[in-house]
Design a protein around this nucleic acid. Structure first.
Lengths: 137, 137
DNA sequence: TATAAAGTCTATAAAAAAGATAGGGTTTAT
DNA sequence: ATAAACCCTATCTTTTTTATAGACTTTATA
């Protein structure tokens, strides 16, 4: 399951996607719309901005806005940013690889081999679903 | 990522699958082979037995053995048993459904719609990969 | 130019989940 | 009778997740 962080990030991106006509949107408005903590959401939006999905304007009249096209924001990226690996095991993660201590030899481990296949097929799905898909339904 | 519980369960199932010629296998042997805690593994094997994947024999000379065909043990089942939902959100889980508090109306939520598609495609993968695939590589 | 509104940033607290251990009970081969 | 093995439940510890706090900076505008 996705963490609340990722779930909230998706809601925030969706909200910002729906309000692209407005110059900026307040954290407050997003938080209120979904009944989630302002401060918690603040940290999430900060991460999304640092990752290049959002822009922000400080000071009075400021707020956040989307700076990428919804079609260029795949679920895979959002999940990786906030939740970490998409792979089911550390030993098959492309971005967060770590060996599994209980596995003697990765090269002959059947679990490893199958999980690589699962990872590749899962990635195909999550790379192809984007914010645009969420917005257009 | 899978929990250690699920990962260990897969290792145990694999080990049992490779030793189907023997009448029973000791928890101890599986634990030692992978350098994992005997007691932790014990709980896991118990769950697998209760779920109908393993049989056991008590007393001296006892142990565990596989009672299902490897091809009849899909990853989806093992994951659900030990880790819970496969869906990325509670609001799209088939087996562990719960509404999302931050979502006003599921019927019009684009995130919900997209996650249903992701769930269905993910499930296709995990239902088709079985212990047999792990054993044969 | 003072003020209030808004994002920035880092630290820490609280809650939940995962991982691990403990120990007495029951069954069974010998 | 004994030792080997699984059975079961409870509890402890550690890690991760979720949430909060508060001081700082930027900016519009009265």
């Amino acid at each position: 399951m996705l963490s609340k962080k990722t779930k909230y990030a998706l809601h925030a991106l969706t909200y910002l996607g729906k309000h692209r006509d407005e110059k900026t949107v307040l954290i407050h408005d997003i938080a209120e719309e979904h009944g989630i903590s302002h401060k918690f959401l603040e940290n999430i939006l900060l991460e999304l901005r640092k990752a290049g999905y959002l822009g922000s304007k400080k000071g009075k009249g400021g707020g956040y806005y989307l700076i990428k096209e919804p079609k260029d924001i795949p679920l895979s990226r959002v999940i990786r940013l906030l939740d970490g690996p998409i792979a089911l095991l550390p030993c098959v993660s492309l971005n967060y690889y770590e060996p599994c201590s209980e596995c003697k030899d990765e090269a002959t481990c059947g679990i490893n081999k199958v999980m690589i296949q699962v990872r590749d097929e899962t990635l195909k799905i999550l790379e192809n679903k984007t914010l645009e898909d969420i917005l257009k339904t």
